[in-house]
Structure formats: C-alpha cells, structure tokens
C-alpha cells in the first residue's frame, strides 16, 4: 500500500509515515497533533474539518492524505503569523461569532478562503459561500458579520 512520508503543513515540511488512503483530517489530528481541525460528520456536510489545499478550501475528512502530498496545507494553526491574528480571527472575536466554538476553526478557514477569492463579498455571497458549514449553536448571523468586518481589513492586508 502506498505510504505518505512527508507533508507541507503551515509552511513547514513534516515527516510521517501513514497509509495514503487515510483521511487528511485523521492524519492532521492524530499523527501531527494539529487538533484545531475538527471532526463533525465525516461526510463533507458540516465543514468543521475545513483546511486549505493550495489555498482551496477542502473538507479534510473526505480527502485522502495521499491527495495532499506536494500541496501547501494550511490549517487553523497556520493562520496566526508571529503572534498576529488573521483579520478574520480578530473579527470573530469582535463580532462574538462563537458560542461553543467547535465550528469556529472550520468557519474561519472557509471564510478566509472566501475572502481571498472575493475580498468584498456581499451578504448573499457570504451566505452561499459559507452554506456548507454548520454551526449548531446558531451563530450564523454573527459569522456573517465577522466576515463583513474582516472584508474591510482583509483587503488592505492582501495588498
């Protein structure tokens, strides 16, 4: 069986030795100790496990780790740079866009990807862009607000 022995995670090369068919989520969480990405459904329905593969938001629970080799993997742990939060992380705090916060890392990864593609999304674009992410605590309104807050600053940061 094919093995995966190296991955690029958050700008670092990490060595490991896992079967290539194992889910990326399980490798991140159990083998690499990056537990910020969460398990919520295992069927691509909730978005709690969202990471970026070469900038593309990806459901790591239904992605075999073999498909991530050679790609830049970004997880929630990689968003903070030198102690400086990503504008969307700041905005989530400002908008109180969390209760239990179990959905938060997936929401932030999906939202960050959305902002990269579309730095000034309309409310409707945010809603359709984020619809694959579930928040059972029902903080959707505040998450929309957080993305709106960040969309102002995110643009400057991108420049």
């Amino acid at each position: 069986m094919a093995r995966v022995t190296a991955l690029n995670v958050n700008g670092k090369k990490m060595t490991l030795d896992v079967d290539s068919t194992v889910s990326l989520l399980s490798v991140l969480r159990n083998d690499l100790g990056l537990t910020g990405s969460k398990y919520g459904c295992g069927e691509g329905q909730c978005g709690a496990c969202t990471v970026l593969l070469d900038g593309q938001p990806t459901r790591s629970c239904i992605t075999q780790v073999g498909r991530a080799t050679g790609k830049q993997i970004t997880t929630i742990e990689g968003l903070e740079k030198d102690g400086q939060l990503h504008p969307l992380q700041e905005a989530f705090i400002k908008a109180d866009a969390m209760q239990c916060a179990y959905c938060t890392s997936g929401m932030i990864m999906s939202g960050a990807a959305l902002l990269t593609k579309n730095p000034r999304p309309s409310r409707d674009e945010i809603i359709s862009g984020m619809n694959g992410n579930i928040c059972r605590c029902g903080t959707y309104q505040r998450i929309v607000e957080a993305i709106q807050i960040a969309s102002g600053t995110a643009k400057e940061v991108a420049k």
């Binding site: 398990y39 969390m98 938060t104």
Partner: peptide, 19 residues
C-alpha cells in the same frame, strides 16, 4: 465583554475532550 478565552478558540488551540 468578549468570551474570556476567545483567542484560544479562533486559533484552534483550545483542547476539547476529543482533542
């Protein structure tokens, strides 16, 4: 006031039982 340890959550640092 904001959630007291909000930063731990937005960075994925907080450890839930499953973590």
């Amino acid at each position: 006031i904001a959630k007291v340890d909000a930063r731990n959550f937005v960075t994925g640092r907080h450890e839930y039982a499953s973590d």
